[in-house]
Write a protein that binds this DNA or RNA. Sequence first.
DNA 1: CTCCAGCACTCTCACCGGCCGAGTGCCAAT
DNA 2: ATTGGCACTCGGCCGGTGAGAGTGCTGGAG
Lengths: 339, 339
Amino acid sequence: MSEERRLDVLRAIVEDYVRTREPVGSRILTERHKLGVSPATVRNDMAALEEAGLIAQPHTSAGRIPTDKGYRLFVDQLAEVRPLTVPQKRAIETFLSEAVDLDDVVARAGRLIAQLTGQVAVVQYPSLRRSGLRHLELVPTAEGRLLVVVITDTGRVEQRFLDVPVNLDDWTLGDLRARFNAAAAGHRLTEIGTAFARLTEAMPEEQRALATAVAEVVTAALAEESEERIVLTGQANLARSGMRFEQGLRPVLEALEEQVVLLGLLTEMSDEAGVAVSIGHENRVAGLSETSVVTSGYGSSDGDSVAILSSIGPTRMDYPGTIAAVRAVARYLSRVLPG
Amino acid sequence: MSEERRLDVLRAIVEDYVRTREPVGSRILTERHKLGVSPATVRNDMAALEEAGLIAQPHTSAGRIPTDKGYRLFVDQLAEVRPLTVPQKRAIETFLSEAVDLDDVVARAGRLIAQLTGQVAVVQYPSLRRSGLRHLELVPTAEGRLLVVVITDTGRVEQRFLDVPVNLDDWTLGDLRARFNAAAAGHRLTEIGTAFARLTEAMPEEQRALATAVAEVVTAALAEESEERIVLTGQANLARSGMRFEQGLRPVLEALEEQVVLLGLLTEMSDEAGVAVSIGHENRVAGLSETSVVTSGYGSSDGDSVAILSSIGPTRMDYPGTIAAVRAVARYLSRVLPG
DNA sequence: CTCCAGCACTCTCACCGGCCGAGTGCCAAT
DNA sequence: ATTGGCACTCGGCCGGTGAGAGTGCTGGAG
């Protein structure tokens, strides 16, 4: 009983089940894949695979379907990379380059992933913390209310309201703005706290309180991980014919709405470089136990990514295709982004 | 056969069907509602209501369910306003007032609607065109590239890149910024074009080209209706038990992803002041023919709204409750927003 | 030792017929 | 106008049956 053929059988089972969404039996397996052995032999292999926990049968006399562990083995060792076609690549490139601003870039990336994979796309906005500060703007909005606007060099804009005790004349405000911008120019947002600290110490007495308040708001806004924004696209794909989940859509939709949790999952996954895959129960998020998540970082050509994008679908998904799509979009995205 | 009782019967049918989600027959009707007549009499009334197209039976010998037309009559004439409880109102107020910025306000409003109604919430960002200009900022980002940032008095920030032929020194930029802000201060964005036209004419020759370019970008950005952004919340509610649609979730989810179309529907509905309801096939949007949409404008205390929020659910929805929730959130939202 | 054909067994699913109940429409009576 | 009575019509719910698919096992061949 050759080990190699057993893995061939597993690959055949995964491929067939992904295509037909029906448990696959020994007869069909020998008919559709040139294994060169009889069904009976395949049955023995299947028994071994089941013993190893790689496949399972839904009920006694139905075919086998891969388990999470089976998919894992498939993804790690058996799947062949299937690069995108040239037209597809061109389409990605042009579609992304037509974007008019950051919102548009993110939205388009989501639509690309959703359409290429036929699944749900999750795109995180370029992280505030890892990008540089371009400009800081202070705008009075109402009596005693100040709007603080942060513009990063990835083109992202963040805003916060700030209640200030006193009214500010335009001149003071202009002065403050100039000082802050001078202090912050070109720094990474993570280093900005210390730069501000130096600044406020050097301020004239009567402005120091306000300055520290502004500095606090800015650093707080940037520190607040929960403010990382993500965008979902292609949720309609969840209702497509091929997407029946055992537990129904409910838990999946609920998990997708818990953006904080979702973001935690994604960042946790993307520790390593390149494309990462998390399968079924490997996702600690309840509600995603019937789905697999394929993620990749993006955002800079020099390796360290500033944000994440991913595709989420049923464990029974086309892994090679999904991985190829996610990787391709991530690459072009990194190229298109300013900075 | 009194006309009045017929309407009582219709109201009873709607209320029962909304509660139980099962076709309601004459017997149960007389048991659960004190109509003071026998089932046989009710049957006659029901026959008349069916003749009038207000109710229908899914198949022979099942109870009746209201038609779109029936719901319409119910909403227009029969539904009694059911104000929110005091705790609910307090909850809305505090939850909204805890928001830290505009994104957060919009997100919280969505969550409120989704939770109060148990349906999908759609919240439009405060419209650019109908709000006033607070501040215009010009930021150089790279050689020959200028970032134009528009801040409205509702706190919304819009950004556009602009390629300029020459490099600008800080002083020219500061001067330009000052001039634009002086010209635009307090104007509605729709009137801003003319204000800018006057400004550019009065400019010194060598700056006029740049000034007109900036003016063009700003007005173009504001004219672009497609940039109106909306946020969806509570899509998980679509998968709740009470939400079975005849055609499945697919068309509904697809319709919700067509943000342009959806926005068109909402703006079309909210022509009139106050809360508007669109029922079933009244929605021209394909895919929403099994749903009803309850919308209200929000955003200013003096009547004319700057944006829209709404709740979308099955035609079989709790209209009084939904209307009350939408109205309440819209009101508090208007109060909380700056401006 | 590996592979394979055959066989008995199990389980799901689709189909069928009949029954039950809910609800209706009509009619005659008040 | 209202009501009680009555026959009728369906849809949904068993319970049984038969076909089909797939398995595990066993014994024999290479």
